[in-house]
Simulated assay, not measured.
Amino acid sequence: MPEPIRMSRRAWVAAWAVLCAAGLGVTAGLNASSSSGPQTEMRVSAECAELIADLEKQLAKTHQEGNDAVLGFSRVQVGAENDCRDELREHFRGDQ
């Protein structure tokens, strides 16, 4: 059986440093590529679109009256396929 190749401590440290630097570079590249791409628009179901339109109307009405807030509830059961929670958050994210 052949003898294993012996490496000095400096060689191990250098190899470890190169691998860490490569990993950090790849991670930074992946983070930059995922955040700089255009966001794809989510499809909104008809029920969620109707709810968002109703909330927009209520919000416009309250702004005219001098108020700044509207409380909205999703009309479907939480956890159901057509839960509008994510669509509501996405739509009103800039209005926080």
Results as ranks from 00 to 15, higher is better:
P2E: 09
P2I: 09
E3P: 11
E3L: 13
P4W: 02
I5L: 14
S8F: 11
S8E: 09
S8R: 10
R9I: 10
R10L: 12
R10D: 14
W12S: 03
W12M: 06
W12A: 05
V13Q: 08
A17T: 06
V18Q: 07
L19C: 06
L24T: 07
L24D: 03
L24M: 08
G25A: 04
G25L: 04
A28D: 03
A28E: 05
G29C: 05
A32H: 12
A32D: 14
S33A: 15
S34K: 10
S34Y: 11
S35T: 14
G37I: 09
P38H: 06
P38D: 12
Q39L: 12
T40C: 06
E41I: 04
E41H: 04
M42H: 03
M42T: 01
M42C: 00
V44R: 00
S45R: 03
S45K: 02
E47I: 04
E47N: 04
C48L: 01
E50L: 04
E50V: 02
E50C: 00
L51K: 00
I52Q: 01
I52C: 01
A53T: 07
L55A: 15
L55C: 15
L55H: 06
L55Q: 07
E56D: 15
E56Y: 09
K57L: 13
K57R: 15
Q58S: 15
L59V: 01
L59P: 08
A60G: 14
K61A: 15
T62F: 07
H63A: 15
Q64E: 14
Q64H: 08
E65Q: 15
E65I: 01
E65K: 13
E65T: 05
G66K: 01
G66T: 02
N67G: 11
N67W: 08
N67F: 10
D68N: 11
D68L: 08
D68S: 13
D68Y: 13
V70E: 02
L71W: 12
L71R: 14
F73P: 02
S74T: 08
R75E: 09
R75S: 13
R75H: 12
V76N: 14
V76F: 09
V78T: 11
V78M: 08
G79D: 07
G79K: 01
G79S: 03
G79W: 05
E81L: 10
E81H: 10
N82C: 02
D83Y: 01
C84D: 02
C84R: 03
C84E: 05
R85E: 06
D86R: 07
D86E: 12
E87C: 03
L88Q: 02
L88Y: 02
R89D: 05
R89T: 00
R89N: 07
E90T: 02
E90P: 00
F92I: 00
R93E: 12
R93I: 01
R93L: 11
R93G: 01
D95N: 09
Q96Y: 05
Q96C: 04
